[in-house]
Write a protein that binds this DNA or RNA. Structure first.
Lengths: 109, 109
DNA sequence: CCGTTGATTAACATGAATGTTAAACAATGA
DNA sequence: TCATTGTTTAACATTCATGTTAATCAACGG
């Protein structure tokens, strides 16, 4: 559960959230690319990446002088499983479960 | 998406997270009961509840002098929908999707 | 009307978070 | 070997978060 709170905390920062989304969209990226992408010092990004790593949300791979980051699926599962375990609460706001299928056609039926 | 970050932020605090879980377990509860349950001043709990309300995660109902709080399903849906939309990433860490069914037999197949 | 109860807001202290620049460090290539 | 590049860590300033107690406010019951 501590893992879960760390994940929530890590994702609650806009910079870190967009890093995660960028890694999801573009696959693995070196720290430098992420820093350039957001108008922010490399030092700041480096520490954000450390927070994400400690929360278990990203992996770091070494390639020469580069540190290449990618999504760590196990980290996201903490959130996914909590969400699933509480499904009855957010489903309660749907008149019909079918509504969500409209939003996400890949949702398992 | 701002709603989503507010929800993550709200849930990243241990006191607020347990308030949410307590409301899920026990249904609606007055602020005073929540304060007594955690050894903390009513003032602190009141502000935590305000954060949860502003994040859209709980509802407030007035009953005489009491403020009775309950889960707000719409708020949880922001997290649920983000999680679902990123499903491919956390499913990637499963050898077989069936694994999760073992953890949660009610998961839709 | 007054005192009590339940709850929130105000004022304050303190520790955590986040950005910057400068320093440190490792890998690479001339 | 030495300069360059990529990244992280250190030191610092500033803002944000969170707890406490005291003050405020509304509802109730005598």
């Amino acid at each position: 559960m501590n893992t879960l709170l760390d994940a929530f905390s890590a994702l609650s920062d806009p910079t870190r959230f967009t890093i995660v989304e960028q890694l999801m969209d573009q696959g693995e990226l070196p720290a430098g690319d992420l820093a350039r992408g957001k108008g922010m010092s490399g030092a700041a990004i480096s520490r954000h990446l450390k927070v994400l790593r400690q929360a278990g949300l990203v992996n770091q791979r070494v390639n020469g002088t580069q540190r290449i980051y990618s999504i760590r699926p196990e980290g996201l599962r903490a959130i996914a499983e909590w969400t699933i375990s509480k499904r009855q609460f957010w489903e309660a706001s749907l008149d019909r479960l079918g509504d969500i299928l409209q939003e996400d056609p890949t949702w398992p039926t």
